[in-house]
């Protein structure tokens, strides 16, 4: 039964992903499906393979075995690791996005806030005619600064004058300006003060729901996964040990490792 045809095919589908880093199996036969508009959290301790999985799905880490398939807006399916480099780069700048834990990894610190947001609109592959018009780009940048609660009068300021929380919000604006359907996030609230984290969580949750963006969210913070994710994938030593509805995995964990993970969390 599939009442909504849009939801009936995955946006991203990975099968049998294996990656060896030196002598360690960083990923060992991992399957992932992601549907449009769905938020999937990948949790597990450091070294469990979360980030390797994220990078492999994103196409920047090549798997030794397995395949990652992506369905484009026209319904065509691509093997992410067999796409040409220019094509993958275009995908990364348009229909996909990546939010790093460290915003300086994505932002250009010598370019104004507005320039950072507008840059993705100038990249090739953004086919909406006129999107590359300077005035429109500035308009879009202002709208997105507002969207992430940055005062638009800061548009010409350099990011180095921004706080950590603002930088993270700027990175999100920069990523979402092209209206991606799929965004990868690596510990997006890590390293921020708790009060700043709450604001960012609320912002991510609201934008993702309103724009119906699918998200693969890597986090070691189970509370973040509970608040943001529809579905959860628990990793240990490169394998998926448990997967399911977020609240079910957290409230009724089946596997020994998941029970350990959940019982180790301090209750807030």
């Amino acid at each position: 039964m599939s009442p909504d045809p849009l939801l009936s095919a995955p946006l991203l589908s990975a099968r049998g992903l294996s990656v060896r880093l030196g002598r360690v199996a960083a990923l060992d036969g991992v399957d992932v499906d992601l549907w449009p508009g769905e938020v999937l959290a990948v949790v597990g301790e450091s070294g469990s393979g979360k980030t390797t999985l994220l990078n492999t799905l994103f196409g920047t880490q090549c798997p030794d075995r397995g395949v990652v398939r992506y369905r484009d807006p026209d319904g065509r399916v691509h093997d992410v690791h067999r796409m040409s480099r220019p094509m993958l780069r275009t995908l990364h700048r348009s229909d996909w996005g990546f939010v790093y834990q460290e915003p300086r990894q994505a932002l250009r610190m010598a370019v104004s806030a507005g320039g950072n947001v507008g840059e993705r609109l100038m990249a090739p592959g953004i086919n909406s005619a006129g999107a590359r018009h300077y005035g429109r780009i500035r308009e879009a940048a202002i709208a997105w600064l507002r969207e992430v609660e940055i005062d638009p009068t800061r548009i010409d300021d350099l990011p180095r004058t921004f706080s950590g929380g603002m930088l993270q919000r700027l990175q999100i604006a920069r990523t979402l300006v092209t209206h991606p359907r799929l965004v990868f996030m690596d510990e997006p609230t890590g390293g921020l003060d708790v009060s700043v984290q709450a604001r960012l969580l609320d912002l991510i949750r609201t934008l993702v729901a309103r724009l119906r963006i699918a998200v693969v969210l890597v986090t070691h913070d189970i509370a973040v996964a509970r608040l943001l994710a529809d579905r959860m994938l628990v990793m240990q030593a490169g394998r998926v040990v448990e997967t399911g509805l977020t609240d079910q995995v957290l409230d009724d964990p089946q596997e020994p490792y998941t029970q350990l993970l959940v019982s180790s969390v301090l209750l807030a």
């Binding site: 039964m1 579905r231 399911g244 079910q248």
Partner: peptide
Amino acid sequence: HAGAWVDLAASDPRTVLE
């Protein structure tokens, strides 16, 4: 659910959310 009988105990997460 939505005019049909659905077994929630056997449904995938997306169906449960729906």
